[in-house]
């Protein structure tokens, strides 16, 4: 199998602007790869370095050392993002546009031909069940609808790799189920999914492999079934063990 996402010895430091403030190491020596067709869970407590890693993959932040590659192209190059779809944790879209206009705009960024764009918009709005609201400005959408609009924009280029940042965060159980079904459908279509989440039960159900990050370093990586067998406990307990959590109740 080919690695669609490859991170090699990644180190990211944030330098404080204030004098006497130490440099903060957000990610240290991270190496991992995701193969074609995998659903990969990227886990870690808040501040573990997940978002920073995502930021490097998306080109928002440059690596201090090491590198990240999407389809063997360094993520510093915009073209590395030609075959990916990205769904942020919260809905960050132009609220004065309708979902149709938003999708048309992003399709132009991907240089998708006009005729194909309209077909894809129809398909995606049907998939995310937003056909009835296609002419309404996004600002009038509920949170669940906005998240589904986000999912539609992430799929506009029929991506081979999806980067999802806590895709079900803040959604009601029905919304979560819909997003999960869509991820499952994409997996069945052979797409690769890389997603960060705090919902460990969900990760255990959907993911083939997981990586757990803590304090910027990779602590555990492997197939979910292998990890569960090895540690003789579920993913949540493995996670708590890795981050060194000790219950105050016992």
């Amino acid at each position: 199998m080919n690695a669609v996402l490859r991170i090699e010895n990644l180190r990211v430091e944030y330098r404080s602007r204030e004098l006497k403030q130490q440099t903060k190491v957000a990610v240290n020596g991270l190496t991992l790869s995701v193969q074609t067709g995998e659903v990969f869970g990227f886990l870690g407590p808040n501040g573990a370095g997940k978002t920073t890693t995502m930021n490097v993959l998306l080109g928002y932040v440059n690596a201090t050392s090491g590198a990240a590659f999407l389809f063997d192209v360094n993520t510093r190059e915009p073209i590395a993002r030609q075959r990916i779809g990205y769904l942020p944790e919260l809905t960050y879209y132009y609220k004065f546009l309708t979902v149709e206009e938003l999708l048309r705009f992003y399709a132009r960024i991907f240089e998708i031909p006009k005729s194909e764009t309209e077909t894809r918009i129809d398909q995606l709005l049907k998939l995310v069940e937003l056909e009835h609201a296609r002419k309404r400005p996004i600002r009038t959408y509920s949170k669940g609808m906005q998240q589904r609009a986000g999912l539609a924009q992430a799929l506009i280029n029929n991506p081979d790799l999806l980067l999802l940042d806590e895709p079900t965060s803040g959604l009601d159980p029905l919304g979560r189920m819909k997003v999960r079904e869509i991820i499952q459908r994409l997996k069945n279509e052979g797409k690769t999914v890389f997603f960060s989440s705090h919902e460990l039960g969900e990760v255990e159900t959907i993911c083939d492999r997981v990586a757990i990050l803590h304090q910027g370093e990779l602590k555990v990586e492997g197939r979910v079934s292998d990890l569960v067998k090895e540690h003789q406990c579920n993913l949540e307990q493995i996670f708590l063990k890795v981050v060194g959590y000790q219950s105050q109740l016992s």
């Binding site: 915009p78 073209i79 942020p88 960050y92 960024i109 980067l163």
Partner: peptide, 14 residues
């Protein structure tokens, strides 16, 4: 501020 730059720069645009 609205963070719309993030989904935009996640596309192949410099």
């Amino acid at each position: 501020e609205n963070r719309t730059i993030f989904p935009l720069l996640a596309k192949p645009i410099a």
